[in-house]
Amino acid sequence: MALLEVKDLSIHFGGLKAVDSFYLKIEKNQLYGLIGPNGAGKTTVFNLLTGVYKPTSGEARLDGKIISGKKTADVNKMGVARTFQNIRLFNNLSVLDNVKTGLHNQTRYSMLTGILKLPGYFKKEAEMDKKAMELLEVFDLHNEAQTLACNLPYGKQRKLEIARALATNPKLLLLDEPAAGMNPNETQELMDTIRFIRDKFDMTILLIEHDMRLVSGICEEITVLNFGQVLASGETSEVLKNPEVVTAYLGE
């Protein structure tokens, strides 16, 4: 059974069909790309999958359980984590605290334990510190653990956002334009990181990207979206040769 199965997913804003009859099937441990021209509805698909929008019709299932139409926080608890096109970090918290916030539902203790600083507090906090530092090390951010998130350079902020998403222990990771604003070197490094995450955490990744070098470099399969509808889907190299896709991207 596919890890993520989306069938006939649509959302209409008034007369505008932002996403129409969208379908997608991602197997476990796959690296999947979602591409399309500006305004095609890629981020809207992400918002539908994470409960930011409720679909007009259709459904998305993760491991057989319906995730579409649920609350964002609940979708995350079911195993979907995401990053954002315009970075959304907790700017006034330290890098370490950003990741520890991601661990919120992984390591729990009651409010009373926190207020009275019972022994459980120190134990769980140390556990969280350890987990968070391990994650930061993966992204080479461990030396900046005490820096405020807003003081990080752009590339590292992107990485921190991925680290925070991974801290929620997801089954499926959604990356919204992870390479936006990165130079070719940084993009290359990011490609290695994404592959590494997939292998180390046994993760399934769905990403939106405009950088064709990154898409053709790491995505095994892709879906092309145009005007809210699926234009083509399948193996990356095949789809990119499709004349319709070329037309949508480059014009006649």
């Binding site: 907790f90 006034n92 916030t101 919120h104």
Partner: peptide, 17 residues
């Protein structure tokens, strides 16, 4: 931390559960 994360970015806080 949960309370401060809501202050800093409500949408991101929701997205991490």
């Amino acid at each position: 931390r949960a309370i401060m994360s809501i202050r800093d970015n409500r949408i991101a806080a929701e997205s991490i559960g």
